Amino acid sequence: MTGIVKWFNADKGFGFITPDDGSKDVFVHFSAIQNDGYKSLDEGQKVSFTIESGAKGPAAGNVTSL
């Protein structure tokens, strides 16, 4: 699925993605970002991701920028 990064705190390594389908915002951890180098996201960035079952509920996985 796709969405827009609502916010991401690079110091803490997590944030939230707002899915394009209008569903509830999804937690994203830096370890789910699939790019080389520094793993961070920018507010407003368009991303593709999967929904994984995290310890505290749904979380984004396999996050790639579009």
Rank of each mutant, 00 (worst) to 15 (best):
I51V: 11
V63T: 02
G44Q: 04
T50Y: 09
N35H: 12
A55E: 12
F49K: 00
H29Y: 06
V5T: 03
Q45H: 07
K24Q: 14
N9Q: 06
F14D: 01
V47N: 00
G44P: 01
L66S: 08
S40R: 13
S31E: 05
G61R: 15
G37E: 10
E52R: 11
S31M: 08
E43N: 13
A59Q: 15
E52Q: 12
N9F: 08
F14S: 03
A59Y: 15
E43D: 10
K39Q: 10
Q34L: 13
F16Q: 03
S48M: 13
N9Y: 06
G54H: 13
D21T: 07
P58Y: 11
T2Y: 08
E52C: 12
V26A: 03
A10S: 12
V28W: 03
N9P: 02
V47R: 00
S53C: 14
F8M: 02
T18D: 03
T50A: 06
L66M: 12
T2R: 08
M1V: 10
A59N: 10
P19M: 06
A32M: 06
V26Q: 02
F30C: 10
D21A: 06
D25H: 05
V47G: 00
L66A: 08
I33F: 07
L41E: 01
L66F: 09
G57Y: 08
A55D: 12
L41C: 03
D25G: 05
K6S: 06
E52F: 14
P19N: 04
G22L: 06
S40D: 06
F16A: 03
D42I: 15
T2Q: 08
V47A: 02
G57M: 06
I33V: 09
A32S: 11
I33Q: 03
H29F: 09
E52D: 09
G61Y: 14
K39V: 07
G3Q: 00
T2D: 03
I4W: 11
I51D: 02
K56A: 10
Q34T: 13
I33L: 09
Y38N: 10
F49H: 01
F14G: 01
G22M: 07
A32I: 04
I4K: 12
F30N: 05
Q34N: 13
A32L: 03
A55W: 13
T64K: 14
T18E: 07
W7C: 07
S31H: 07
L41M: 05
V63P: 01
V5W: 02
A10I: 12
K39N: 07
V47F: 01
G54P: 04
K56H: 12
K39I: 07
D42L: 15
T50D: 07
G3P: 00
G15I: 02
D36V: 11
Y38D: 09
G57H: 08
I33T: 03
K6V: 05
N35L: 12
V63Y: 01
E43L: 13
